[in-house]
Design a protein around this nucleic acid. Structure first.
Lengths: 186, 186
DNA sequence: CGCATATATATGCTAGCGCATATACTAGCG
DNA sequence: CGCTAGTATATGCGCTAGCATATATATGCG
């Protein structure tokens, strides 16, 4: 059900088409929410049936017609309800940790390979996130008068992402070092 | 598909019943993987049909009969294949960050409430994880000769959990401070 | 005896997800 | 003209998920 709420969130500032929503998902939102484009269109349909959004067909000459969706009163109040509701502790499943947990069933060399690939991925994510943070001139951690200085909500999630990737990097490198030390002993 | 692989992992040391597997999930595994018990039984069935596991019915006098599952050759090689395969970057959806990202649509007081509840949850998780880490006398970060000293894979994931919860706590408290500072200014 | 709890497995239902694929219009290039 | 790329929406399919519920045996308590 959460994708529908994320869509409500993206529509809070004004109307957008499914295509627009997908663009925004692929750029900003994807750091904390991923969704297939087919899901977006299906969600919009069921949200419309529920009365959370309504659409207007916009005729364009330079490209195909589009459906531009906007929040209804109902949709806006559902958004507020969701935002104010403390969610349950997201244990959120972590496939990578799952692999590592059982990895005594493969050789240390193979374990190191998995970890090394992971390290590369983390480095890429971190670089991308730090690039975004720099674009917004965002110090980590945020100073206490951040809001006063015009810092908005999306910087909170950006900061979270940066911190998390730094942690992951540190942890992966530490784990690799532990495994390497084990090889040297043999 | 990953729950099936997690089950393969749990069976790697020896046979277990669905009920046993659920117990282990609820205690150790749940920090990185959550699953409903009904899913476990259904997964076991399809794994058996695929030839990854086989079972033996064990008659008990003190409780109902049970089906004890063990890995087949095929199952063990599938486990190894999965463990050695570097997974794709788990962007893993984060409902809490999603909420926060759009939370300029509710009052700062409401935002603070959500964050405060989150802080309580994180404190609980952290306490539980640190209790487990202490039980295993696990320093964070792990020393480089950790494996030599008998440290096994599950301590890696435990350490990850502890670090992650500490980060979450720090970040939540920082975010709360930023919002509070904003109230004081008004 | 009745009742609760633990052990043990299983099904029905609905929703959600990702991947592949279909359809169609427009613009630009050669 | 044919081709590719971008814009735009939509459906089919199969798998995965969680929640509720059914069923059955054994133990312990009052």
């Amino acid at each position: 059900m959460t994708l529908q709420h994320v869509i409500l969130g993206m529509l809070r500032r004004g109307p957008k088409s499914g295509y627009d929503l997908n663009k925004q998902l692929e750029t900003t939102i994807r750091f904390f929410w991923e969704a297939d484009i087919s899901r977006i269109y299906r969600s919009l349909r069921s949200m419309q049936e529920q009365g959370w959004v309504e659409f207007e067909t916009v005729v364009q000459d330079d490209s195909p017609n589009k459906k531009v969706y906007s929040l209804t009163e109902q949709g806006r109040s559902e958004l507020k309800r969701w935002l104010a509701e403390p969610g349950k502790p997201s244990g959120s499943n972590n496939p990578f940790l799952a692999q590592l947990h059982f990895s005594d069933a493969i050789s240390i060399q193979e374990q190191l390979h998995v970890l090394t690939v992971r390290r590369e991925e983390v480095l890429e994510s971190l670089a991308e996130l730090e690039r975004r943070a720099r674009l917004q001139d965002l110090p980590v951690p945020l100073p206490h008068d951040a809001l006063e200085q015009g810092v908005t909500r999306d910087k909170f999630s950006l900061e979270y992402g940066v911190r998390r990737m730094r942690l992951e990097l540190d942890w992966v490198e530490n784990t690799i070092a532990v495994l390497r030390a084990d090889i040297d002993v043999d």
